[in-house]
Nucleic acid binder design. Structure first.
Lengths: 245, 245
DNA sequence: CGGGTTTCTCAGAGAAATCACAGCTTGGGG
DNA sequence: CCCCAAGCTGTGATTTCTCTGAGAAACCCG
């Protein structure tokens, strides 16, 4: 089931109307905190664990609808944790966190059941998007919720990564896509550059703050080019997107 | 009966509309887990067993529509298990798992009854495809469900392994065929290289991830050659197939 | 056993995306 | 009406990703 909150955000809910539950497992506390905060903001209920045993215990009594699992835990190897989780929660989708370089070596089979993974360092927007996808597809949330965001005559499909304005297809790069997704997820709301940076860029990004301006500029060229603009600047505050009308 | 889920995947269902039930029997837990995960993702209901006696017991009260049976079990020889299964479930099709070298001849006789087999290490795409075939042919699912995938002017027949584009026959190798099947089963959806690798290559594949790029390249030569391309790259995300239109 | 086929590795070429930097434009307070 | 801070965008260096040719090894079939 989906419902729209007072702020205009669309939330995933379970069929019985209760909030989706997500278990976050990582040994770095800064990461679990970062994730918990971001995921709570989605309206989800979060529990976190710092090691494999904690994860198994939490799975048992928290009974999450999805799990975010770091593959590098101090006490147990990621696959063992996965195995034990599966015993208690056979149908729960898992989002794996892996180091960038470790990717190739044994992700094999992990995404087979519809699971997914992201590499560290990740962007929150990416984690949230993938989790939403997993939950949506697992059926823990209402299956009718679909993967297309719409604002005015602008659409963005999270599955096919297709973007259209007034019916015309628009090609976006990965970063442009994530930025637009974030804007469209928060229509008519001013988002500060800091928020955007925190959400769309990976947490260890150390560059110039004006990448945001730069990418807003790219997006405008592709989306607003010669049309009624949808992306607006609020000088000193940030940016927002809203229907052209 | 077939039905189409929100993600656009086509599911097999039993005539009464309930999900298909599959029993998975293997002594290696990692294998039963891998298979269970993949088969659940197909929308099927799964039960697993780790030995012959467990299998017989499970067959009796789970009453599966199909069985995946490893021929090498610790407690009983595969043939005895098969015999006992047949006593309770005379018409249920069985997909045998055998070691690569484990003689074809004995298996060959077994598959005469409409059963089938795959050799370890297998690719999930192959197991799923064969199981679908068995279930479809056994009549447990609606017989009208057919075996041809169509995307635009591209067709792929899972029974005859025939592929055509705009009416012209196209010869594909085994790997190319499985890759294309996977793409066509998920039209308009971006599939990451990891997903493709997990699904199309066998679970013990340890090679370079760029085999995926390589085979995409092969497929393009055969399918898109000099025509409107149907296979698209989403840089940094993966590949997808969609009608040329 | 031998030839054709298939699978896969490796490596280089090329294309695309990301980002820093710097100069230019704009808005609005004084 | 002027000026400054905030925002915008062109240029180009660098990094990252993708494609594909060449060839080695495994495989299949007769």
């Amino acid at each position: 089931m989906t419902t729209t909150s007072p702020q205009g955000r669309t939330e995933l809910l379970r069929p019985d109307g209760s909030p989706v539950r997500v278990l976050v497992v990582d040994d770095e506390q800064s990461i679990t905190e970062l994730l918990s905060m971001a995921l709570r903001y989605e309206g989800w209920q979060i529990r976190s664990a710092g090691d494999g045993h904690g994860a198994v215990r939490a799975a048992r009594d928290f009974r999450p609808d999805a799990v975010v699992l770091d593959m590098m835990l101090p006490d147990m190897d990621g696959l063992s944790v996965l195995g034990r989780l599966r015993r208690d929660l056979p149908d729960v989708p898992v989002l794996f966190l892996t180091a960038k370089d470790a990717v190739e070596d044994r992700i094999a089979g992990l995404t087979a059941g519809g699971d997914d993974y992201v590499t560290k360092p990740f962007s929150l927007e990416e984690v949230v998007a993938r989790l939403r996808g997993l939950i949506r597809r697992s059926g823990a949330a209402d299956r009718r919720s679909d993967s297309v965001l719409v604002v005015g005559d602008l659409t963005l499909d999270e599955d096919s990564h297709e973007v259209t304005r007034g019916g015309d297809g628009i090609h976006l790069t990965a970063t442009e896509f994530e930025l637009l997704r974030f804007l469209m997820r928060n229509p008519r709301r001013v988002l500060s550059k800091a928020q955007i940076l925190d959400r769309v860029w990976s947490y260890d990004f150390g560059g110039q703050a004006n990448v945001v301006e730069l990418y807003i500029s790219y997006l405008r060229r592709k989306i607003d080019a010669g049309r009624e603009p949808m992306i607006h600047t609020r000088r000193g505050a940030g940016y927002l997107i809203k229907p052209a009308a």
